[in-house]
Design a protein around this nucleic acid. Sequence first.
DNA 1: AATTCATTTGAACAACGCTAAGATAGCGCT
DNA 2: AGCGCTATCTTAGCGTTGTTCAAATGAATT
Lengths: 227, 227
Amino acid sequence: MIYTASGLRFNVTVMSETSPPRARAYHHGDLQRALVDAARALLEREGPSALSLRAVAREAGVSPAAPYHHFKDKAELLAAVARQGWDLLDHGLSAAIQTGGSPHARMTELGVAYVGFARRNPALYRVMYDSFRDKEALPERMGDERSAFHRVQDTLVEAGADPNDWIGLELGAVAAWCASHGMAEMAGFKQFDRLRDALGGEENFLRALMDQLSIYAHRPAAAPEDK
Amino acid sequence: MIYTASGLRFNVTVMSETSPPRARAYHHGDLQRALVDAARALLEREGPSALSLRAVAREAGVSPAAPYHHFKDKAELLAAVARQGWDLLDHGLSAAIQTGGSPHARMTELGVAYVGFARRNPALYRVMYDSFRDKEALPERMGDERSAFHRVQDTLVEAGADPNDWIGLELGAVAAWCASHGMAEMAGFKQFDRLRDALGGEENFLRALMDQLSIYAHRPAAAPEDK
DNA sequence: AATTCATTTGAACAACGCTAAGATAGCGCT
DNA sequence: AGCGCTATCTTAGCGTTGTTCAAATGAATT
């Protein structure tokens, strides 16, 4: 039976950002990676609702049961897609935070980069967030000292935060993360069209929102008791 | 064929917050409302993944095709559920913002109420948000002068904002909304357990986050050009 | 009492996630 | 080289889902 439109049943990778070829080739040629690539292609072309396991297998040119030899679940395939996405986002954030300027300005660029990524790849971001919530995992990235999560805290220190106050540092990073996630998911809403237009487009809208939220202005954490 | 466990095939409403009985009874007795109630019961009992149209019909004691005479789609049923949820949340917010205290304190209570609602009804909040995003609608509530969205802006005015600067007012309200949504979706994450515990529980965690974000501190909107 | 018509049912279709059993093909071993 | 082993892939099938459609049901109107 033919699963591909062309007769070619090989790993034709045209995606821009994929993991480096690990070159394990059995019957198909590293179907594991081909499936993740197919999923991402499908995600960008047809949106998240079209992302069924069978459709991914179809896209990769294999039978509907083939993926089960590489992923336990549909969820596990999506988790692999999500991991690629988080890696991509992490690289983008690390680049954004290395731009010159004050810590204040760098935090803003960080937020713009985060939300921009999510807005440019909305379907991928949704898969990323879903996997993040459902798996209650992805700790490897947060735990890594080189992760953006830690770079943010470094920047907060440069902005004057106490480097020994880990609570305050994590709190600032998490607050920025929450706010960025909220903006990422809501900034494109039709309901805000008038406001977004009045501010001169989405980027200005985002920067104005971040100014409101003072996402970059770290201040010492309040003690748990006082409100 | 029997669709209910008991022989009773009638509208047994035990939910706490439902729309007032409109008492239109044909064969079943206002199946429209019974379906929404069944969906919400199912949502709380089994979670969002169990919320299939057939399961809702089963819960309501009717055949799988019955809902299609009251809702065009599964999406339309979920939209009805979502609308109930937004109404509930709006009432909660309006109550929270009427507590005494400074505008600052009231904005904080508003945020706590929003996030608290979402954390107490996570499945419902997910349906609400999904419907909000997919339908690109729900304008009736935002447009209503009595909605929480406008109460927030009133509070910003009390805090010193220019009542004629509609851009600044909407920006402040939207910023608070985005931040609240982000916290609502992320505050429960396992990844933040250590930080949450260090701050003495979820409520303190939330208040500390909001303090970081200065969700309540309105400041004049920046002109689109300056960053 | 007959008719009308919204309402509900039963059956069916395609697509989905997933499983089990068989076919295939590359690998290591003698 | 030949053999078997095992991972890989396919075929077929199960149960479930969303949705449609003709037939049946029954409350309300005439």
